[in-house]
Amino acid sequence: MTIADMVNILNAKVLRGADKLDTPVYTACCSDLMSDVLAFVDEKTVLITGLTNPHVVRTSEMLDLKCLVFVRGKIPTEDILDNADEQGLVVITSKLTAFSACGLLYDAGLRGVPVPTAWDAEE
């Protein structure tokens, strides 16, 4: 799917990067823990989160993510959004909860990024 499809599925509002909605997306991750995102995500993917602080954008920037999805209608401040814009990030916001947003996107074909689990080391 493309980011435009995600916008439709989530009934989302585009906050930044409206010119890049035709970007294809295949995977996503959902987390409020930037430590985990930095440690486990190693592909250009989508981040679904309920955190709206500047570090969500900085984390996305370091990882070259394609799109940030804020849930429960959250919107970060204008300067955070402008910073995302400078990085070429698409930013959208949906009124859905993280759980519902992920469920709908999964149903439409988006998959989780492959990450090691805490169990892998033991096996």
């Binding site: 409020d32 823990l33 930037m34 430590s35 985990d36 995102v37 930095l38 440690a39 955190l51 602080n53 570090h55 969500v56 984390t59």
Partner: peptide, 15 residues
């Protein structure tokens, strides 16, 4: 509260 403090940073740097 900012989303850090999982104790992943140093191992992640090493990786």
């Amino acid at each position: 509260s900012l989303g850090f403090g999982a104790g992943m940073g140093l191992p992640n740097m090493k990786r």
